[in-house]
């Protein structure tokens, strides 16, 4: 029987890609292309992880046209920010800080 995780880490944020996406949105909202360049992800990979974050309610996605080009913008929700803070707290607890 697998050992229960005593620190109860959020399964959404145990993925490093999703953790990086959420961290990238802490200071400012970001566009799809900016996240893709910053995190060196493929379009498909970013899309999959962004969708999971959106389903978890951690990220809000806004799609609109700017100068006739489709632009997708991600922003961190209150729940996402709280989840990241809790995740950092648990990481530090694990490290004994």
């Amino acid at each position: 029987m697998p050992k229960a995780d005593p620190f109860d880490f959020d399964p959404v944020l145990t993925s490093r890609v999703r953790l990086a996406i959420v961290s990238a949105l802490v200071h400012h909202d970001a566009e799809f292309t900016q996240l893709k360049e910053l995190l060196r992800l493929t379009q498909g990979n970013l899309g999959v992880h962004a969708r999971k974050l959106e389903e978890a309610g951690y990220v809000a996605v806004d799609k609109r046209f700017v100068d006739k080009k489709p632009v997708t913008t991600f922003s961190l929700t209150k729940e996402g920010r709280a989840a990241l803070v809790a995740h950092v707290r648990r990481l530090k607890q694990l490290l004994g800080e």
Partner: peptide, 23 residues
């Protein structure tokens, strides 16, 4: 999750925060 992974995750968060703050 083990301690090494936790340390790497914290370092990842810090690095991404720093990069996005400045750019």
């Amino acid at each position: 999750m083990d301690r090494e992974q936790a340390a790497r995750d914290l370092e990842l968060i810090g690095r991404v925060l720093e990069q996005t703050r400045r750019r």
